[in-house]
């Protein structure tokens, strides 16, 4: 399991060549090709075929590639999985996950398909979409059930529908769920990716919601419009000050270790192990990689 830099995931409907071709230019950390909700039932076959050809022949400038397949309960899910795994995307997003049994089954299936395609078993990661109340309750079991599972994400529309409640701009109705997703993801050191902010003309609203997500512990957010990418990236990137602080913590910690000193304090705050690890993570993520902004 890892904790990759996945600040923004840009949804791209997989049936639109113009959008597919330009997907990588907007600076999203992950391109999320969608075969599910943005594709009409009558176009599922066309989208799948187009995505296969695109992933086989286009160069996305080393941007991480994710594919959202249809639910395995639908008649398209299995076909999606069988045709997408052999192309070897980095991560597959699977909708409507509510039990660990689903993940175990999918994991096995992917392993089988990877072998068949001469891919290293375990190569493809999965991202579970939590979209039902039951899924929220089973979160920990779900995450613990597969080594492949490297990100959790929230499907807010379906979840509120499942609960029979409305989405509000304040988002209180999703507070518990968001917190729980972030908590479980943190515990298992995987990504927590927040749901989309659908009014793409309201950039202030997006910024507000993204800041809240970050406060709760999310590591990234799905976006539906290129103009949302910069804001989301910015929010999830630590400030220069935070990075400098992290460097200072790590520097002092290694000195302390050298001189056998137990407890250290930076800027008047005591540094314990979790804080040190967090500092290392920040440096790892944002110092070594060239992050824009």
């Amino acid at each position: 399991m890892n904790n990759k830099l996945r600040r923004s995931m840009l949804y791209i409907p997989a049936n639109n060549p113009a959008m597919i071709q330009d997907a990588f230019i907007y600076g999203a950390d992950t391109i999320l090709f969608d075969l599910e909700d943005s594709i009409a039932i009558s176009e599922k076959d066309a989208a799948r075929e187009l995505l296969i050809e695109a992933l086989n022949s286009l160069n996305f400038n080393n941007t991480e590639i994710a594919v959202r397949i249809n639910s395995l309960d639908s008649k398209f899910g299995l076909k999606d999985l069988k045709s997408i795994v052999p192309i070897g995307p980095d991560i597959i997003r699977i909708p409507k996950i509510e039990t660990k049994e689903q993940i175990i089954k999918i994991d096995k299936l992917i392993t089988k398909l990877e072998r068949k395609a001469n891919l290293q078993p375990g190569f493809i990661e999965i991202m579970a979409m939590i979209e039902t109340a039951k899924g929220v309750l089973n979160l920990e079991k779900i995450v613990a059930s597969s080594e492949r599972l490297s990100a959790l994400t929230l499907g807010a529309e379906d979840l509120t529908t499942d609960m029979g409640i409305k989405r509000t701009s304040l988002g209180r109705e999703l507070f518990l769920t968001r917190s729980k997703i972030a908590l479980v993801a943190a515990a298992y050191k995987i990504n927590a990716i927040d749901t989309v902010f659908s009014d793409f003309n309201d950039l202030n609203g997006l910024k507000k919601e993204t800041l809240q997500s970050k406060e709760l512990g999310f590591t990234g957010k799905a976006v539906i419009h290129p103009r949302q990418v910069d804001i989301v990236n910015h929010v999830f990137t630590p400030s220069q000050e935070e990075i400098e602080d992290a460097k200072e913590i790590v520097r002092q910690a290694s000195q302390a270790e050298e001189f056998g000193k137990g407890v250290i304090a930076v800027k008047g705050k005591m540094v314990d192990l979790p804080i040190l690890n967090r500092a290392k993570e920040i440096i790892n993520k944002y110092e070594k990689r060239e992050v824009i902004k």
């Binding site: 113009a18 959008m19 009409a40 793409f200 539906i224 419009h225 290129p226």
Partner: peptide, 8 residues
């Protein structure tokens, strides 16, 4: 190009 248009 328009993003996120809904076609029904």
């Amino acid at each position: 190009m328009l993003w996120n248009i809904k076609i029904n």
